[in-house]
Amino acid sequence: MSTPIIQLAATARVYRADGVEVHAVRRVSLEIQQGEFVAIMGSSGSGKSTLMNILGCLDRPTGGEYLLDGVSVSTLSRSQLATLRNRKLGFVFQNFNLLARTTALENVELPMFYRKPLVALSSQRRRAVEALQRVGLGDRLGHRPSQLSGGQQQRIAIARALVNEPELVLADEPTGNLDTRTSIDIMGLFQELNDSGITIVMVTHELDIASYCKRIIVMRDGLVISDAPNPERRQAGPERAKLDEAEQIAKLD
Protein backbone atom coordinates (compact mmCIF):
# COMPACT_ATOMS: atom_id res chain seq x y z
CA MET A 1 0.00 0.00 0.00
CA SER A 2 1.21 3.50 -0.79
CA THR A 3 1.85 6.22 1.81
CA PRO A 4 -1.36 7.40 3.45
CA ILE A 5 -2.28 10.95 2.53
CA ILE A 6 -2.86 11.82 6.15
CA GLN A 7 -1.07 10.34 9.11
CA LEU A 8 -1.86 11.70 12.58
CA ALA A 9 0.15 10.31 15.50
CA ALA A 10 -0.98 11.49 18.94
CA THR A 11 -1.65 14.88 17.41
CA ALA A 12 -2.68 17.55 19.93
CA ARG A 13 -3.54 21.23 19.82
CA VAL A 14 -3.53 23.29 23.00
CA TYR A 15 -4.64 26.91 23.11
CA ARG A 16 -3.57 29.20 25.87
CA ALA A 17 -6.15 31.88 26.55
CA ASP A 18 -5.78 34.14 29.63
CA GLY A 19 -3.47 31.63 31.26
CA VAL A 20 -5.98 28.79 30.89
CA GLU A 21 -5.02 25.84 28.72
CA VAL A 22 -7.71 24.65 26.34
CA HIS A 23 -7.14 21.19 24.90
CA ALA A 24 -9.01 21.51 21.63
CA VAL A 25 -7.53 18.32 20.22
CA ARG A 26 -6.02 15.90 22.73
CA ARG A 27 -4.36 12.86 21.23
CA VAL A 28 -5.68 11.93 17.85
CA SER A 29 -4.09 9.17 15.84
CA LEU A 30 -5.48 8.12 12.49
CA GLU A 31 -4.60 7.52 8.86
CA ILE A 32 -6.49 8.45 5.74
CA GLN A 33 -5.65 6.68 2.51
CA GLN A 34 -5.80 7.80 -1.07
CA GLY A 35 -9.34 7.66 -2.44
CA GLU A 36 -11.16 7.77 0.88
CA PHE A 37 -14.25 9.89 1.57
CA VAL A 38 -14.25 10.64 5.28
CA ALA A 39 -16.71 12.54 7.43
CA ILE A 40 -15.53 13.98 10.74
CA MET A 41 -18.54 14.44 12.99
CA GLY A 42 -19.05 15.94 16.37
CA SER A 43 -20.98 18.62 18.20
CA SER A 44 -19.58 22.13 18.46
CA GLY A 45 -16.60 22.23 20.76
CA SER A 46 -15.70 18.66 19.98
CA GLY A 47 -12.46 19.76 18.34
CA LYS A 48 -13.44 18.82 14.79
CA SER A 49 -12.86 22.33 13.40
CA THR A 50 -9.47 22.57 15.10
CA LEU A 51 -8.56 19.19 13.65
CA MET A 52 -9.73 20.41 10.26
CA ASN A 53 -7.50 23.52 10.53
CA ILE A 54 -4.55 21.28 11.31
CA LEU A 55 -5.35 18.92 8.44
CA GLY A 56 -5.65 22.00 6.20
CA CYS A 57 -2.21 23.32 7.23
CA LEU A 58 -3.84 26.52 8.43
CA ASP A 59 -2.69 25.65 11.92
CA ARG A 60 0.13 23.55 13.35
CA PRO A 61 -0.25 20.89 16.05
CA THR A 62 1.33 21.68 19.42
CA GLY A 63 1.96 18.04 20.13
CA GLY A 64 2.34 14.76 18.29
CA GLU A 65 2.99 14.40 14.61
CA TYR A 66 1.10 15.22 11.41
CA LEU A 67 2.35 13.91 8.11
CA LEU A 68 0.64 15.21 4.98
CA ASP A 69 1.54 13.04 2.02
CA GLY A 70 4.57 11.86 4.01
CA VAL A 71 5.74 15.42 4.90
CA SER A 72 5.90 16.44 8.56
CA VAL A 73 3.94 19.67 8.96
CA SER A 74 4.85 20.66 12.54
CA THR A 75 8.21 22.15 11.67
CA LEU A 76 7.24 24.02 8.51
CA SER A 77 7.32 27.84 8.25
CA ARG A 78 4.30 29.96 7.38
CA SER A 79 5.34 30.22 3.73
CA GLN A 80 6.03 26.52 3.48
CA LEU A 81 2.54 25.84 4.87
CA ALA A 82 1.13 28.23 2.26
CA THR A 83 2.93 26.37 -0.50
CA LEU A 84 1.61 23.06 0.86
CA ARG A 85 -1.97 24.41 0.92
CA ASN A 86 -1.52 25.64 -2.63
CA ARG A 87 -0.13 22.42 -4.07
CA LYS A 88 -1.74 19.61 -2.08
CA LEU A 89 -5.00 20.91 -0.65
CA GLY A 90 -8.31 22.28 -1.82
CA PHE A 91 -10.71 24.00 0.58
CA VAL A 92 -14.48 24.16 0.56
CA PHE A 93 -16.05 26.31 3.29
CA GLN A 94 -19.52 26.57 4.80
CA ASN A 95 -19.89 30.19 3.69
CA PHE A 96 -18.27 29.53 0.28
CA ASN A 97 -15.57 32.21 0.84
CA LEU A 98 -15.54 33.43 -2.73
CA LEU A 99 -14.12 36.81 -3.66
CA ALA A 100 -17.11 39.09 -4.16
CA ARG A 101 -17.20 41.30 -7.26
CA THR A 102 -14.97 38.80 -9.01
CA THR A 103 -16.21 36.44 -11.71
CA ALA A 104 -16.57 32.70 -11.24
CA LEU A 105 -13.69 32.13 -13.62
CA GLU A 106 -11.38 34.51 -11.77
CA ASN A 107 -12.31 32.94 -8.44
CA VAL A 108 -11.34 29.54 -9.79
CA GLU A 109 -8.10 30.91 -11.25
CA LEU A 110 -7.04 32.30 -7.86
CA PRO A 111 -5.07 29.27 -6.52
CA MET A 112 -3.10 29.13 -9.76
CA PHE A 113 -2.12 32.78 -9.26
CA TYR A 114 -0.17 31.76 -6.16
CA ARG A 115 1.36 28.65 -7.69
CA LYS A 116 5.12 28.91 -8.06
CA PRO A 117 6.38 28.67 -10.69
CA LEU A 118 3.42 30.33 -12.32
CA VAL A 119 1.19 28.34 -14.66
CA ALA A 120 1.09 29.86 -18.14
CA LEU A 121 -1.82 32.32 -18.30
CA SER A 122 -3.51 30.55 -21.21
CA SER A 123 -3.46 27.17 -19.48
CA GLN A 124 -4.67 28.87 -16.26
CA ARG A 125 -7.79 29.86 -18.12
CA ARG A 126 -8.22 26.45 -19.72
CA ARG A 127 -7.86 24.65 -16.40
CA ALA A 128 -10.28 27.01 -14.65
CA VAL A 129 -12.85 26.50 -17.40
CA GLU A 130 -12.40 22.71 -17.18
CA ALA A 131 -12.85 22.80 -13.40
CA LEU A 132 -16.04 24.83 -13.73
CA GLN A 133 -17.34 22.46 -16.40
CA ARG A 134 -16.60 19.57 -14.07
CA VAL A 135 -18.89 21.04 -11.39
CA GLY A 136 -21.57 21.82 -13.98
CA LEU A 137 -21.03 25.59 -14.22
CA GLY A 138 -19.45 25.72 -17.68
CA ASP A 139 -22.09 28.28 -18.68
CA ARG A 140 -21.58 30.63 -15.73
CA LEU A 141 -17.95 31.66 -16.23
CA GLY A 142 -18.54 35.39 -16.20
CA HIS A 143 -21.08 35.48 -13.37
CA ARG A 144 -20.26 36.99 -10.03
CA PRO A 145 -21.04 35.18 -6.77
CA SER A 146 -23.87 37.62 -5.98
CA GLN A 147 -25.57 36.66 -9.26
CA LEU A 148 -25.59 32.97 -8.38
CA SER A 149 -27.51 30.74 -5.96
CA GLY A 150 -25.91 29.24 -2.86
CA GLY A 151 -25.52 25.84 -4.51
CA GLN A 152 -23.89 27.41 -7.54
CA GLN A 153 -21.54 29.42 -5.34
CA GLN A 154 -20.51 26.27 -3.53
CA ARG A 155 -19.85 24.62 -6.88
CA ILE A 156 -17.50 27.49 -7.77
CA ALA A 157 -15.74 26.92 -4.46
CA ILE A 158 -15.42 23.22 -5.29
CA ALA A 159 -14.04 24.06 -8.73
CA ARG A 160 -11.53 26.37 -7.04
CA ALA A 161 -10.55 23.54 -4.68
CA LEU A 162 -9.97 21.21 -7.63
CA VAL A 163 -8.12 23.49 -10.02
CA ASN A 164 -4.60 22.86 -8.69
CA GLU A 165 -5.20 19.08 -8.74
CA PRO A 166 -4.79 18.62 -4.99
CA GLU A 167 -4.06 15.39 -3.13
CA LEU A 168 -6.92 16.12 -0.79
CA VAL A 169 -10.10 18.19 -0.71
CA LEU A 170 -11.10 19.47 2.73
CA ALA A 171 -14.70 20.54 3.19
CA ASP A 172 -15.85 22.37 6.32
CA GLU A 173 -19.65 22.03 6.68
CA PRO A 174 -20.03 22.40 2.90
CA THR A 175 -23.83 22.06 3.05
CA GLY A 176 -24.33 24.13 6.20
CA ASN A 177 -25.78 27.09 4.31
CA LEU A 178 -27.76 25.08 1.75
CA ASP A 179 -31.27 23.67 1.60
CA THR A 180 -31.92 19.92 1.55
CA ARG A 181 -32.18 19.51 -2.22
CA THR A 182 -29.05 21.54 -2.92
CA SER A 183 -27.23 19.71 -0.15
CA ILE A 184 -28.02 16.39 -1.84
CA ASP A 185 -26.77 17.81 -5.15
CA ILE A 186 -23.50 18.96 -3.58
CA MET A 187 -23.02 15.59 -1.86
CA GLY A 188 -23.72 13.97 -5.20
CA LEU A 189 -20.97 16.08 -6.73
CA PHE A 190 -18.56 15.07 -3.97
CA GLN A 191 -19.44 11.41 -4.55
CA GLU A 192 -18.74 11.79 -8.28
CA LEU A 193 -15.40 13.44 -7.55
CA ASN A 194 -14.53 10.73 -5.04
CA ASP A 195 -15.48 8.04 -7.57
CA SER A 196 -13.00 9.64 -9.97
CA GLY A 197 -10.26 9.15 -7.34
CA ILE A 198 -10.21 12.40 -5.33
CA THR A 199 -9.72 12.02 -1.58
CA ILE A 200 -12.20 14.04 0.45
CA VAL A 201 -12.34 14.84 4.16
CA MET A 202 -15.44 16.63 5.34
CA VAL A 203 -16.45 18.11 8.68
CA THR A 204 -20.15 18.10 9.47
CA HIS A 205 -22.44 17.85 12.46
CA GLU A 206 -25.33 16.42 10.42
CA LEU A 207 -25.60 12.65 10.30
CA ASP A 208 -27.70 12.98 7.12
CA ILE A 209 -24.77 14.53 5.33
CA ALA A 210 -22.15 12.27 6.90
CA SER A 211 -24.07 9.26 5.66
CA TYR A 212 -22.98 10.02 2.07
CA CYS A 213 -19.37 9.35 3.07
CA LYS A 214 -17.51 6.04 3.11
CA ARG A 215 -16.05 6.39 6.60
CA ILE A 216 -17.27 8.30 9.61
CA ILE A 217 -15.06 9.59 12.43
CA VAL A 218 -16.83 10.94 15.52
CA MET A 219 -15.11 13.31 17.91
CA ARG A 220 -15.94 14.48 21.38
CA ASP A 221 -13.89 16.67 23.74
CA GLY A 222 -10.89 16.59 21.45
CA LEU A 223 -10.79 12.81 21.17
CA VAL A 224 -11.86 10.38 18.47
CA ILE A 225 -14.57 8.25 20.04
CA SER A 226 -15.49 6.25 16.98
CA ASP A 227 -13.92 5.62 13.59
CA ALA A 228 -15.67 3.15 11.31
CA PRO A 229 -16.67 2.53 7.71
CA ASN A 230 -20.18 3.67 6.89
CA PRO A 231 -22.19 0.52 6.18
CA GLU A 232 -25.39 2.26 5.13
CA ARG A 233 -23.91 4.67 2.67
CA ARG A 234 -26.43 6.84 0.88
CA GLN A 235 -26.19 7.61 -2.82
CA ALA A 236 -27.24 11.04 -4.04
CA GLY A 237 -29.20 9.73 -7.05
CA PRO A 238 -31.77 7.64 -5.18
CA GLU A 239 -31.98 10.23 -2.38
CA ARG A 240 -32.92 12.90 -4.92
CA ALA A 241 -35.56 10.59 -6.38
CA LYS A 242 -36.96 9.95 -2.90
CA LEU A 243 -37.12 13.70 -2.26
CA ASP A 244 -38.94 14.30 -5.56
CA GLU A 245 -41.45 11.60 -4.68
CA ALA A 246 -42.04 13.04 -1.22
CA GLU A 247 -42.65 16.50 -2.70
CA GLN A 248 -45.00 15.05 -5.25
CA ILE A 249 -47.04 13.43 -2.47
CA ALA A 250 -47.02 16.65 -0.46
CA LYS A 251 -48.45 18.52 -3.45
CA LEU A 252 -51.19 15.91 -4.00
CA ASP A 253 -52.40 16.21 -0.40
Binding site: S79, A82, R85, F91
Partner: peptide
Protein backbone atom coordinates in the same frame (compact mmCIF):
# COMPACT_ATOMS: atom_id res chain seq x y z
CA UNK B 1 -7.87 34.95 4.52
CA UNK B 2 -9.24 33.41 1.33
CA UNK B 3 -6.08 34.23 -0.57
CA UNK B 4 -3.96 32.73 2.18
CA UNK B 5 -6.11 29.60 2.34
CA UNK B 6 -5.60 28.91 -1.36
CA UNK B 7 -1.85 29.33 -0.96
CA UNK B 8 -0.88 33.01 -0.94
CA UNK B 9 2.26 33.51 1.10
CA UNK B 10 2.81 36.50 3.36
CA UNK B 11 5.07 38.01 0.72
CA UNK B 12 2.30 37.74 -1.91
Amino acid sequence: GIRMAVGAQGSD
